[in-house]
Design a protein around this nucleic acid. Structure first.
Lengths: 145, 145
DNA sequence: CGTGAAACTGGAGTCGT
DNA sequence: ACGACTCCAGTTTCACG
């Protein structure tokens, strides 16, 4: 992971389909040298995957919310993972410092389906209560989505 | 946006470099038909970009936090956007329902740089106070990152 | 770890249906 | 709209510095 690797990753983030030759001309290497670095970064897991960024609104997932999860007593992270993985609307979840046990990011079609997803999460026996913040408008979105 | 478009997008999400021919064989179309659909989805903005998913830890951004932002009086979303865009550690921010004015997702190298970023956000005159939740462990991460 | 050139594969555009 | 075809750019692999 040197400066050239970082430069290549930055360029790939902007356009994962950029030809190796063009990447090479920008970082001062030949196409095959760039390919070898990209292969190495992919094998090492630094580059996890080549994906597409989809506009959630146009895909029919325009409604999102962040939910703080409060559990009864002590719940193992593994249990939380099991509960939250079962709900397809859950895009992201993590245990956090502070009052809440976990922070959950939910995405769905509309408010109704958001409420349904929330209700399914709340119905888990270890979940005591939740506190929701529905997203009104996005201000910043650096990795997009 | 029909079922085939959705299937193509799902496949591209898993591997954005999959050849059109292979996508076609999976959804039951020819390579050129798939290309036309992908071109159309890209032009329409449904597919925003072709990118790479990078492991934040291996890239040196292993520390993240979610911050609730509380402002003095009423602050226009445009002002919040300006303030938060200025801070590179801010990955995502949105205005939300509930007590807080905005929810901010921050990513940085370590706790020290996280604190520095937080301090810069708090120093904005319209910001009254913040409430932070540092991420301990990720439980679910469907679009990864 | 780098380059350059060979062989090959997938992409872009244009047909015809 | 889809499929088939051609041409070329880009990828891939290899021998070599």
């Amino acid at each position: 992971m040197d400066a050239i690797d970082r430069a290549i990753i930055d360029l790939l983030r902007q356009n994962a389909r950029a030809p190796f030759g063009e990447l090479g001309s920008r970082v001062g290497l030949s196409a095959s040298a760039v390919k070898r670095r990209v292969d190495r970064l992919t094998a090492a897991g630094v580059i996890r995957a080549f994906t597409v960024q989809v506009d959630p609104r146009l895909e029919g997932l325009g409604t999102e919310a962040y939910i703080e999860l409060f559990c009864r007593g002590t719940v193992a992270p593994a249990d939380l993972r099991r509960i939250l993985s079962a709900e397809p609307a859950v895009v992201y979840a993590a245990t956090v410092t502070g009052d809440a046990d976990a922070l959950v990011h939910i995405r769905s079609r509309d408010i109704e389906s958001l409420e349904e997803a929330l209700e399914r999460v709340r119905s888990a026996p270890s979940v005591d209560h939740t506190r929701s913040a529905i997203v009104l408008s996005r201000l910043v979105n650096r990795d997009a989505g």
